[in-house]
């Protein structure tokens, strides 16, 4: 081994050590900063003495009192079940209609303007309509959530089916694959990544709609609880509800990403170069 080689190996080792050190620094910053933020918020809210922004510790106590698990059955479960039923209904309808419109070009061309219009209505504006037509009960809220969550799934499915490689369809035809098997085993996997993208948008919409519809139509649920707390100036209770909604938003997003990675593992694996 010449002196030159030794020098290069040492330089390389130095470099990799520097990279590793840098990675540790980045990681520690990534862990430390959020902790710092939480502590700062705690200290600030405790010392600021603002009426509308109560101490964080108080909010956490209220959170524990309200949601673990006193109001679980009366408010949380109704909200969540409405949300999930509406969401699942939207996914089923959206995928089926998306499949049809993605392959029936004439039908798609005919109803594209109508769909674009329905999609463009600010979802919440429909709440008063639905209240008039269907009343204030659970069915109304679920239908509302379904209607709103429908569009991202439907339009994404349709675009995915339409954009599919025509070779897939032709190959399936040549091999005489039954149309139902083709849809299920060829078209569905091919469209899955885009369907999931639509589902992610829909799920966050579902949470928003369940909260807003409860705020406007009343009954029970997290949205009602938050608004009632605000009206009765139960500020810490109100914040505990907001924290819960925030946690739900975060958890649902995470959950869908986990499911997506599971279901689409083959896709991500096959397209690592693309991603």
């Amino acid at each position: 081994m010449t002196a030159m080689d030794v020098a290069t190996t040492e330089a390389l080792a130095d470099k990799s050590r520097a990279i590793r050190r840098r990675r540790y620094r980045l990681l520690s910053v990534e862990v430390a900063f959020p902790v710092l933020v939480v502590v700062a918020v705690g200290v600030w809210t405790a010392s600021a003495g603002l009426y509308f922004i109560p101490p964080l510790t108080g909010v956490l106590v209220a959170f524990q009192e309200n949601w673990l698990f006193a109001r679980m059955a009366s408010d949380v479960l109704p909200s969540l079940s409405r949300m999930m039923i509406g969401f699942i209904g939207a996914v089923v309808i959206g995928v089926v209609v998306g499949f049809v419109l993605g392959q029936a070009h004439r039908l798609q061309a005919m109803f594209a303007p109508v769909l674009e219009f329905l999609r463009a209505i600010p979802a919440v504006a429909l709440i008063p309509l639905v209240i008039i037509v269907l009343g204030l009960d659970d069915t109304a809220k679920v239908i509302l959530i379904t209607f709103i969550c429908l569009w991202p799934v439907l339009l994404n499915t349709e675009a995915a089916i339409r954009g599919m490689d025509p070779g897939l369809r032709e190959t399936a035809r040549v091999y005489g694959i039954h149309w139902f098997r083709y849809e299920l085993q060829v078209a569905l996997p091919a469209a899955a990544p885009q369907i999931f993208a639509g589902m992610r948008t829909s799920l966050s919409l579902a949470l928003i709609m369940v909260v807003v519809s409860e705020m406007m139509a009343g009954g029970n649920g997290i949205g009602v609880f938050v608004l009632q707390s605000q009206r009765s100036f139960a500020i810490t209770d109100m914040w505990s509800g907001i924290v819960l909604i925030g946690i739900f938003g975060y958890v649902f997003n995470l959950l869908l990403i986990v499911v997506e990675n599971r279901v689409l593992a083959w896709h991500h694996g096959a397209n690592t170069a693309v991603e």
């Binding site: 900063f33 928003i208 807003v212 608004l227 907001i242 997003n253």
Partner: peptide
């Protein structure tokens, strides 16, 4: 890079929170 690492968890946590949840706070 450091700012990105520091803020990423915070942004990822705050982003999915629906802003409508804050309507009562905004009213107050």
């Amino acid at each position: 890079d450091y700012l990105f690492a520091a803020t990423r968890p915070v942004v990822e946590f705050l982003r999915p929170i629906p802003s409508v949840a804050l309507i009562p706070v905004a009213i107050l």
